[in-house]
Design a protein around this nucleic acid. Sequence first.
DNA 1: TCACTTATTAGACGCTTGCCTTATAAGCGC
DNA 2: GCGCTTATAAGGCAAGCGTCTAATAAGTGA
Lengths: 207, 207
Amino acid sequence: MMASKDMKAPPRRRRASPVVRRADLVAATVNCLARLGAKGATGREICRQAGVSHGLLRHYFRNPDNLLLETYEQLCEDMLTQLEAAAMPDVGEPGEALHRYFVAVFSDDWAGPDIIGAWMVFWQQARSRADFAAVSESFNFRQRALFERLVAQLPQRDAALPMDDAIALLSAVLDGLWIEFYLSDQRTPRERCVALCDAAARSLFGA
Amino acid sequence: MMASKDMKAPPRRRRASPVVRRADLVAATVNCLARLGAKGATGREICRQAGVSHGLLRHYFRNPDNLLLETYEQLCEDMLTQLEAAAMPDVGEPGEALHRYFVAVFSDDWAGPDIIGAWMVFWQQARSRADFAAVSESFNFRQRALFERLVAQLPQRDAALPMDDAIALLSAVLDGLWIEFYLSDQRTPRERCVALCDAAARSLFGA
DNA sequence: TCACTTATTAGACGCTTGCCTTATAAGCGC
DNA sequence: GCGCTTATAAGGCAAGCGTCTAATAAGTGA
């Protein structure tokens, strides 16, 4: 006789606080986005990854898309907070804060393949969905503001280039190198990316 | 009585040459990628968009993924050919070819929202799949070579920046602005992108 | 200790997808 | 005009997804 014939097997049902579970699901979403891309980051797969039943998603989010949006918001918030923390202490020579900003941008936390991969999915969503576009807009605005504050600390040099242009260019350099690094951290390793950013800042704003 | 009770309704079966049909499917793939993102560009949807039955995909490609890869290759080829054609005639002042290159990169053909959206999907694939990575690698190499040839025409200036660094930076500027333009052609319109590229070239390689 | 809230699981349903197999007809060589 | 190749369509099948509903147990307050 099967000793455990019809053990209903309620495997594990440790209850967690809503805030923790939501965070779990958000984290699992990033993970899935990284491993499987937009196509593979399905609601059910995310739940599997988070170790919860697929029904739970609906309990916390209206639908998978909504979870994706919240993940985007969370990621933006975290990234901005961390970048700000890395760059803000106004110590050292002028320009040193900017350097720390570069280092943070290309740190494993924010330039890991998974993060950038997820980011691309968000970018795509931002093209077609207003809610994603709004998050993107807000993020860009805040990032740009932080950026301008850092640049303003630099010693003013000849205005060969309008300030706006120089900032837009440095910002583009960051994004471009981010992608380059994403495509092949072999071809353009982390330190080179940071060095290139430094060089760009020097070239655009004066030595 | 239904006059046309069991008309087998062979709706339309105009036969097309293989090369045309393949091109149709590739074009439909780009279109779907643009409209629906990676998630929505399913084999069946692509066939729907191309106006053919879903069985036909298998007849020309092994599977949807393979069609995606071929689309990537085709797009790379087309883009390189066109960029080369736009920039190669060595007429005008030095640097003018480079300018034409910038214009071509941000032309509707290659910076349309659909194209860039598709490109992001390819980038993601390149992270996890060797065949896509190979295409990406080859494309990058050829693009970089064309780029270097254009830059070499410029009058040599002070070497404040190693040539390699300057090229890498200008390349990054292009990619970064490409994305910026993708995210909002309102915020950074086409002409501004080109102007910024010109400014970057001037700043990096000397006036 | 007992009821009450709610986090959590599990199952059902309809739909779509990718893959494969079979049937049909379009156009070509003869 | 006839027949062969093959482009094309269409249907079946299993798997996976998203949504919804119902059942269950884990804490919590009295």
